[in-house]
Computed example of a mutant assay.
Amino acid sequence: MSKKNVEDYLTEGIYGTRLPKQEERDYFLGTLRERIVIALTIGQVMTDKGIQILEENMKHYPDAKLLFNGKIASRFLKAEKELANKYNISYTVINNEAVETDIGAVLTYDYAIDKEAIFMNENNEDTPSEEDTDHKEKTGFLSKLKRLF
């Protein structure tokens, strides 16, 4: 491991300690993809298209917590908050103005569950789509190797 120089200390002092997979955390409202049960876009939250699948996942994963994008007005989150209260699931509104994301709500755990399909398909609301699971974060060496075969 290399020694830290003065620039590293200054950068860490200004911006804080760098977390692993920071882009992934920013995109998924502060959590990692491997911890997510279901992720809804801002449009799905605002139109309540994902309310039914969110409720089903809340029933199956009662120990999860719900994260909301703070850029969504609270009047659009009313139904989701009522569901969270109904199933005793804690929720948090994440306000991060520096980050652009199209994720509106995430049902997540504090540990990895590695659920394959985390996005809801627009055509069939009950079935998460396969193409949405191939998110841009899957650009590691193993995923590139899998694509070759």
Rank of each mutant, 00 (worst) to 15 (best):
T31M: 10
M58S: 00
L145W: 02
E100N: 11
D114H: 13
I14A: 10
I113T: 01
L67E: 07
V106I: 04
S143W: 13
G43L: 04
I38M: 01
F149Y: 14
Y27G: 07
N95R: 14
D63V: 12
K21E: 02
I42Q: 00
E131N: 05
D102T: 12
D8P: 01
R35N: 14
E55V: 10
T11H: 14
T41V: 01
L148G: 03
D26V: 05
L40E: 00
S129G: 10
A117K: 15
D134T: 07
M46A: 04
D114P: 01
A79V: 12
G70D: 06
T92W: 15
I14V: 15
R75M: 13
M120V: 06
T133L: 14
H135Y: 13
E34F: 03
A105N: 06
R18P: 05
M1A: 15
E130Y: 10
N124H: 06
T41N: 07
P62H: 11
T101F: 08
G13Y: 08
A64Q: 09
T41R: 05
L32T: 08
T11M: 15
R25V: 06
N123I: 07
D110H: 09
N69S: 05
F149W: 11
G43C: 08
L29F: 09
T127G: 04
Y111N: 00
E116H: 09
D132G: 12
K49R: 03
F141V: 04
N123C: 08
E56A: 10
K71Q: 12
L148E: 03
A84L: 13
F119N: 04
D132F: 12
N121K: 04
M1R: 08
N85D: 15
Y9A: 02
E125Y: 14
G50C: 02
E56N: 07
V37F: 05
V45Q: 01
A84H: 08
K21V: 09
F119D: 00
F141D: 01
Y111Q: 01
E23Q: 11
E23N: 03
Q22N: 03
K78V: 10
P20G: 01
T47Q: 14
E82T: 09
A73C: 15
M58Q: 02
T11L: 14
T31A: 00
F76L: 10
F141I: 11
A98C: 05
Y15N: 08
L19Q: 11
D8N: 07
R147G: 10
G70C: 02
T41H: 07
D126H: 12
N57R: 07
K144L: 07
E137V: 15
K21N: 11
I42C: 00
